[in-house]
Design a protein around this nucleic acid. Structure first.
Length: 204
DNA sequence: TGCCAGGCCCTCTTTAGGGCCTT
């Protein structure tokens, strides 16, 4: 049984999925047995001009988006790519919100189980300076690949961070990292209780 | 016109407030 995990990242026109902001790029990598086995990347034309802030922040210009496919072309392909995999994202509520919002605009009713790499990192790396993706990539000595704030590069680095955290669970606590149920439990325990929880699991 | 997110997490908490993260 090979558990397929998809690490996903959206670039968007802003922070509010419910307030009218739209996805402008999605990147995703598929992990099986700790290895990247597939990748998905696409720009999405949001139907309106993005702000200068977003152009600067992401490096995605209005000119680049003018010829990009729309959500109607991209999201069904993304849904097929995800399949029945467990999804991982850094600050997952953000990406989950945009995924659901884009689905709903198309009348798609899919919902996928998400695990948040930031919540796991807060529990596994409580002493990190902060828990932004860029900081954690440096803290966990994950290779920087590509440009931060582009969807596929951020998804790749989140995937590397994720694998580093799974390796730590295996090495330090002798915990089988292939269990989504355990990871969901870990992200739900209080941060102050995480170390004790992991020791309890390791002792079982 | 003016407004402009929301979930998680901690604490000087729970009849609340503010920082952290994502774009």
């Amino acid at each position: 049984m090979h558990q397929r995990t998809i690490v996903i990242d959206f670039e968007t026109t802003g922070l509010s999925a419910r307030g009218g902001d739209r996805a402008i790029e999605v990147g995703a990598v598929a992990l099986v047995n700790g290895t990247v086995v597939d990748r998905f990347q696409s720009l999405l034309n949001p139907g309106f001009r993005v702000s200068a802030f977003i152009e600067n922040y992401t490096g995605i210009s209005n000119a680049m988006l003018a010829d990009a496919p729309g959500s109607r072309q991209v999201m069904p392909r993304l849904r097929d790519f995800i399949g029945d995999a467990v999804l991982v994202a850094h600050n997952a509520s953000f990406d989950q919100g945009f995924l659901q919002a884009e689905y709903q605009r198309l009348g798609l009713r899919d919902s996928h189980p998400f695990i948040c790499s930031m919540r796991v990192a807060r529990r596994l790396y409580p002493d990190a300076p902060n828990h932004r993706l860029g900081t954690l990539v440096e803290y966990a000595r994950v290779p920087v690949c590509g440009q931060f704030h582009r969807a596929l590069a951020d998804a790749e680095m989140t995937a590397c961070l994720w694998l580093a955290m799974l390796a730590q669970l295996a090495d330090r606590y002798r915990i089988d990292p292939a269990s989504p149920a355990l990871l969901r439990k870990l992200q739900a325990v209080k941060i102050s209780r995480a170390e004790a929880y992991l020791r309890e699991v390791a002792a079982q």
